[in-house]
Design a protein around this nucleic acid. Structure first.
Lengths: 139, 139
DNA sequence: GCTTGACCTAGAGCTCACTCTAGATTTTAG
DNA sequence: CTAAAATCTAGAGTGAGCTCTAGGTCAAGC
């Protein structure tokens, strides 16, 4: 079997997370983990469940647009242990607001885009050119 | 005054759009406009209202995550004039679906993030460490 | 007329977030 | 035991999307 005491090799973690092994090694170089990933006797990374769990949160933060730099800062705070929870909370709250704003922005874009879609659909149904862009013609 | 027959110089368009003049020139090089921007006698760009209107749509498409390459394709379709409306519609519909999916994704992330925020808030109110990450401790 | 600032082109440079390469080592399957 | 697959490190390369520079030209105010 490939698990050593509940630990996973990089390949399996990569597959489970939808990341490349390169990305995982890159994350570690960038100090995005809460600890250096432990190694087997042969020097290979052995990811523990807590590393995987942390990665899951990282994925959510990254997917929602948090930069590597910011995530690194969050990891640093968590690593420095108890006492800086207010800082961690502030960072998370700021990110939450950023994501909310982004969603609102996308919603607004979606309205415009959907409007265009509807206009085109109507045009194609009716065979008219009303409301369509064409070289040198408006809305 | 700075308008020549309802045309705006690059600086004013840039300011109005929240883009740099560099970006506007880049967009033109990349064929993102429906036409080459007309020039004044001295060789300066003079943006017409239709260019600005097109830019507004471009901004929405870009803001909602459409790549330059895709936008270029859309511009090419619109430039090639009437007859390819089904293609334009298909492109817009696909983008609409992409944006919807992105919003759903962000919503899911937001749930996780908000959960973390609430956990930290609760911890800070109660003075407990329950449910918090710390070096070598779970959730 | 002259200074100042906006604008021009072509092209180099930058940031981000990976991604890939080379060359070596380790592990697993047969 | 051997061959193939997975992993290792250090560092170079990539692509998107601008951003900036150099070396000018052009236009407006005094």
């Amino acid at each position: 079997m490939s698990e050593i005491e509940d630990g996973l090799p990089i390949g399996q973690v990569a597959e489970a997370m939808g990341l490349s092994v390169h990305a995982l090694r890159f994350f570690e170089r960038e100090d995005l983990f809460l600890r250096p990933i432990p190694r087997s006797a042969g020097g290979r990374r052995v990811y523990g469940p807590e590393d995987v769990e942390w990665l899951l949160l990282c994925n959510r933060l990254r997917d929602s647009g948090m930069s590597i730099a910011r995530l690194k800062e969050f990891a640093r705070l968590v690593r420095s242990g108890p006492g800086n929870e207010p800082d961690r909370l502030a960072l998370l709250q700021e990110h939450e607001r950023t994501v909310q704003a982004r969603i609102a922005d996308l919603d607004a874009c979606l309205v415009i885009i959907h409007d265009k879609v509807v206009t085109y659909e109507k045009h194609l149904r009716d065979g008219t050119a009303a409301g369509l862009w064409s070289p040198a013609s408006s809305p």
